[in-house]
Simulated scan of single mutants.
Amino acid sequence: MERGVVMKSDIINSVDRALEILLTIYENNREMGISELSEQLGIYKSTVFRTLKTMEERGFVRQNPTTKNYWFGTRIYAIGLSIREKMHLQDVIAPYTRRLYEQCHEIVNVSILENSIGDFHQSIIIHKEFGDKNLLFVNQPLGSSTPCYCSSVGKCLLAYTKGLDFSIYKTKPMERFNERTINSYESLMESLEDVKRKGYALDDEEREIGLTCIGAPIIGRDGSAVAAISVSGPTSRMNDGHIDEKIEMVVKTAWEISKEFR
């Protein structure tokens, strides 16, 4: 057999079905249910169900708790971002984050949402800007994650991402990092409503005493958050009488980046 020629016997049917489902959802450009996928692909509903559940466990699809239909999961988005990064995604974001850093001289992070089944949502840092004076301060590396309920970017992602399931916060105790950390479902929902009203979120030492963060959502064309941006620094510097100006800078930058995703 020649190199590069794929024989029918080399095809793994279960993998082929999973890819067909992903491609069908992509081509329809909307959430799809088990019955509809079964009809379009000519596959038994039970097979579609098992395939979707397998992909959901790995984060490739997620089920809308309201409609029960399926859409792409955060793993697909993360892979897409990785590919786009190789295609100069950094060139799109970097001018905005660099300008924001030069305006406030504090650490700038851009994060995305990771929705792990059976666990709390996490925010993952995909891009950052910082300078020499930030090296001795808390400076999480690229790829690091933080529970969303106790970070400014995390609360923005929770507040502005459509179709999230918050039931985990009712059934599983949230770790309390200090007395300022949100640790109840009711407090979290109240905080997220506040974020929606204001258009930004604050982490006022909720994760780390002495650290204050301002976050704002980056909104895609469907009105849902694709990422969030934050400025982080020592509380003594962040609350220096100019915090309202910093909030305005972060919100403006998030809005400008949002336009790139539409």
Score class of each variant (00 low, 15 high):
Lys53Asn: 08
Gln63Asp: 06
Ser191Ile: 02
Tyr185Asp: 06
Ile43His: 01
Lys8Thr: 14
Ile209Ala: 04
Thr97Asp: 01
Lys246Pro: 13
Cys213Lys: 03
His121Asn: 07
Gly215Met: 03
His88Lys: 13
Ala225His: 03
Asn178Asp: 03
Leu164Gly: 03
Ile168Asn: 06
Gly154Pro: 01
Glu57His: 04
Glu39Gly: 13
Phe177Val: 14
Met1Tyr: 12
Ile12Val: 15
Asp203Trp: 03
Ile12Lys: 12
Phe137Met: 14
Thr212Asn: 03
Arg75Val: 04
Ile21Thr: 04
Glu106Asn: 12
Ile243Gln: 06
Leu188Phe: 07
Thr74Met: 14
Glu179Gly: 13
Thr181Pro: 00
Val195Ala: 08
Arg176Tyr: 10
Asp16Pro: 07
Arg207Phe: 07
Thr66Gly: 09
Leu188Lys: 00
Gly59Val: 03
Glu39Met: 11
Thr47Trp: 01
Met7Tyr: 15
His242Ile: 12
Asp240Trp: 00
Glu175Gln: 10
Ser224Leu: 00
Ile229Tyr: 02
Phe177Asn: 09
Ala18Asn: 09
Ile214Leu: 04
Tyr101Glu: 07
Leu135Lys: 15
Leu142Asp: 13
Ser191Thr: 11
Tyr160Ser: 04
Glu36Ser: 13
Pro95Cys: 03
Cys104Ser: 14
Ser144Leu: 12
Asn178Leu: 07
Ser46Arg: 05
His105Asn: 11
Asn69Glu: 01
Ser14Asn: 12
Arg180Thr: 15
Asn178Gln: 11
Asn139Ile: 11
Arg58Thr: 11
Leu164Asn: 01
Asn178Ala: 00
Thr146Glu: 11
Leu136Trp: 11
Ser167Glu: 10
Leu37Ser: 00
Val195Thr: 00
Arg197Val: 12
Lys196Asn: 10
Ala201His: 02
Gly241Arg: 15
His105Pro: 08
His121Arg: 12
Ile243Lys: 09
Gln140Pro: 11
Ala254Trp: 00
Trp255Gln: 10
Leu157Gly: 03
Ser46Asn: 07
Ile25Gly: 05
Lys8Asp: 15
Leu164Tyr: 04
